[in-house]
Nucleic acid binder design. Structure first.
Lengths: 195, 195, 195, 195
DNA sequence: TATGAATGAGAATTCATTCAT
DNA sequence: GATGAATGAATTCTCATTCAT
């Protein structure tokens, strides 16, 4: 059981986290100060430093958490569909990611500028359920008699490409909007998987 | 003939541009102030504002200029090699880009965070010689009886993927270093081109 | 006859004067720079200094000119009405001033903050036709067998009181609006004149 | 009892207030910077912004405070004299104001440019003891069977006229010095009161 | 643990003024 | 006379961080 003090502590940290998230996506990182975050969180300015080293520490934690939430969510959607073909599963997974990002443009903006592979790996490591993405891929590779030693690198390239293209398509809508580039993206992803 | 004033103006602007570039890549954008740039350029602080709106205006111009220089350079190297096979040409082009970026890690760091497709298009538009990249691709597509209507989107995806992977491999060396990921990158690029 | 150069010079000075007036009343004195004035006047920045010592030199000249224009205008209106009673003349004169000021609130704001009696005396001295205000008063005093040695001080007090009250009533509308305070103002002015 | 922090806060604010007052009257508002005020107050530059929005916020507060102090002081002097005639009381009150202003020319300069009726009303509202000015007038009006509904507007005109004339006479000594204009001012004030 | 007043370095930006052309 | 590029001092204001309570 969690003590009252413990809970209170969590509350303050959560308040700061949420306030930071709100401010970062709505007014940008450069234009958000620790004062603002503390005030929005309803805690004292000094309290911020009890939980985070500085603005960028909070930012990193937000990026990790939110990124893994997206992957998690996309994985859950894919599982629920109970698709049998591996390529359908992958398409559904990517399609879900794109859908989520399209609904949360501001979040996309934030994580695109800050998400790095190390952070993502940390996310995957910390959140067990993301492992299932990997499991899904492994199962698909075996069923399709593909070289399993390529799973990691392929997954990496797929996520990089999807991330970049999603950012340009959704945020900048340049050089192609999402609907236009999607078929090309899916085609390329399938090529990456198949030998 | 160019007047003395005109020449002097160009000098000041160039000094600011060069000083900005130096400082941005060496100490980061956030940690570079306009005061520092002006001082390093040997001009008055107010002079900065005669040529640039703010720090980010200068940054954008640097990004455009340097990006197009990279593409330009890679194209020149590829041409000089007088390769006959289209796939060899593409490989050489990408290889050249990676080589340049590896030699200018700091520049890579700078442009990766700031290069957006609109900026790159501006660069391509402003610098005629970059057109030859496109020409090279077109010639290759025709020779290989590939669908030329896909040139644009393929080129776009190739550059995005190359950029992302180069950044991770060269700067972060995660999750793969450049030599490890390169074969996979080339393989994927070839798949993108071929149907 | 005026030479072409002379005319051109006058034009530049007039342009600066008009531009300064526009900017001063529309964005305030503190927020108007010599750069802005020069640009609005369509002349070089250095040209400003050929005609005015600084911003406040221009401001003083504007204040003088505009103040005397107001007195002039009010005097003209009064004369045209051909009133026979001195008190009617005075009422008409004050009424005209108030009307002009009400129509040019921004001007009122400008001159109230900057008009000083020395400036007004200069205006009266420089613009002969304002003398007729004095003449009107003198005639009225004699006809009404009033002590003419009090003309100066009475006129002074009347203009001071009118100016202050007009500013509060028209600009701030505090503590009374113009229609409310007017009868009291007229009553007081009449008392100032009559012994 | 007031806490140590609370006391310290008041001290800082008071230091800033006093420093601002000193600098404003001695070197003018435009030529006084927030840096100077903070330094003179012996507090950090940022501390200024904890207590005042900007220079003009401080200026307004100074104007209010000092104006009400003047009225207060004049009222106290008048009361102590225990004059029986209302006109004598009024004369004494005005005379006291002029005396105070004459002794504090710099303050007169400051408040004349910035004092507006709204500010003065705020001062009167915030400082109960100024109410006694109004009480004195009311008592006088009743004793002299004057229309009490005119008290407000008369008091307003008297203060406006006195303020304007005091400024010209004391600061500019134009067009009349204080001793010359005083009898006329008193005469006019009496006329304003009497019907 | 939690607070928030205090700090002062330092950032961006403006602007009057000069002077070579 | 007319210009406008160049200057750099000066100003405002922010903000991360500290620390006494």
């Amino acid at each position: 059981m969690i003590s009252k003090i413990e809970r209170n502590k969590l509350n303050k940290e959560k308040s700061l986290f949420d306030a930071g998230y709100d401010l970062f996506i709505n007014q940008g990182i450069n234009d958000t100060s620790i004062s603002q975050i503390s005030k929005a969180a309803g805690v004292g300015k000094g309290t911020f430093y009890l939980y985070f080293k500085d603005k960028y520490d909070l930012l990193d934690r937000i990026t990790i958490r939110k990124s893994s939430e997206i992957l998690n969510e996309a994985q859950k959607i894919t599982e629920e569909r109970q698709l049998t073909l591996f390529t359908d599963q992958v398409d559904c997974f990517i399609e879900s990611i794109l859908m989520i990002l399209e609904n949360e443009r501001l979040l996309l903006k934030l994580i695109h500028k800050n998400l790095s592979w190390p952070l993502l790996q940390k996310a995957i490591h910390d959140h067990d359920n993301i492992q299932s993405v990997y499991t899904m891929f492994k199962k698909g590779y075996i069923e399709n008699i593909l070289a399993t030693e390529n799973i990691d690198v392929s997954l990496y390239m797929i996520i990089e490409l999807t991330g970049s293209i999603a950012y340009n398509a959704i945020i900048k809508q340049e050089p192609y909007d999402l609907e236009t580039i999607k078929p090309h993206l899916f085609s390329t992803i399938n090529k990456i998987i198949m030998e």
